[in-house]
């Protein structure tokens, strides 16, 4: 099975405090620690496991600036066979549709049986997988937490829906799936793994390589434009307890007692 996995480089929210920059045009990007979007790691792991079982190859693609190369390489160290970086100044300021339109041309340059995305990325949008499927006229399933290869032309997939229940579906290939965390346990990538792929050539494709008219992507084509970033006014918010750990603990114990938080 030929599998394409879309991966995004994002600031790691577990490692960083995200702040708005001075004029509100972006977040403060100096000193941020970046990583692969959490969901995409599960997608790559799933693709590798499928190929281990039924054969084929895994290709990872990331759209971003040249720094995104490091995450493509990281996913290749996990075991993806091929990597592609899609990068062009003309792509900047693309909205979700722009990103999906670009990834569509990447998908069409290959011949993939299965295309995987993460369920969502740092924007929390969860939009690219569904858009890509619709643009390619392929069946789609979101928040997928299990994949079973039934035949060359069919998968059985579980979707994790509300309450943690699982919705089982049959879906024809080729198709697009967006992957939910927890579907597998992504393998650890060590320094040695990274070293092994350090010199692998990762092609960079721009608008011309993909046959994209620059006026159809990027900021000018975006129907959804980001205006600014801001930090919402704190409503009432939590009462923050101050003092030494011991003092705070004592205040908290009084509150717990009052609210029925200590039996």
């Amino acid at each position: 099975m030929e599998i394409l996995v879309c991966v995004k480089r994002v600031p790691d929210t577990a490692e960083n405090e995200i702040e708005v920059n001075r004029d509100g045009s972006d977040i403060e990007r100096d000193d941020l620690v970046y990583s692969v979007n959490e969901w995409d790691n599960y997608a790559v792991e799933e693709a590798i496991q499928i190929v281990d079982k039924v054969g084929g190859a895994v290709t990872v693609v990331s759209l971003g600036d040249e720094d995104s190369e490091e995450i493509v390489r990281r996913e290749m160290a996990m075991g993806a066979n091929n990597g592609i970086l899609v990068s062009d100044d003309a792509f900047e300021g693309s909205d979700g549709k722009g990103v999906a339109a670009i990834l569509k041309t990447v998908a069409e340059k290959g011949s993939y049986d299965l295309i995987l995305t993460g369920a969502q990325a740092d924007d929390g949008a969860g939009q690219i997988g569904g858009m890509l499927a619709a643009m390619l006229d392929l069946p789609y399933a979101s928040v997928v937490n299990s994949i079973e290869v039934v035949s060359d032309s069919q998968l059985k997939v579980g979707r994790e829906i509300e309450g943690g229940n699982q919705e089982l579906n049959e879906i024809g290939l080729p198709c697009v799936l967006s992957i939910q965390t927890g579907i597998n346990e992504p393998r650890y990538v060590g320094i040695r793994g990274i070293r092994k792929v350090a010199s692998v050539d990762i092609p960079i494709w721009g608008a011309a390589d993909l046959g994209l008219d620059a006026s159809n992507v990027g900021q000018s084509a975006a129907g959804v434009k980001r205006v600014d970033y801001f930090v919402p006014e704190f409503g009432e918010g939590a009462e923050i307890l101050e003092g030494s750990d011991e003092e705070i603990a004592e205040k908290l114990i009084d509150l717990l007692k009052a609210k029925g938080g200590i039996k």
Binding site: E19, D122, G124, V224, K225, R226, D228, Y229
Partner: peptide, 11 residues
């Protein structure tokens, strides 16, 4: 965005 650490206006 970013797990709710910042907000953004879109048009």
């Amino acid at each position: 965005e970013y797990s709710g650490q910042v907000s953004t206006h879109l048009m």
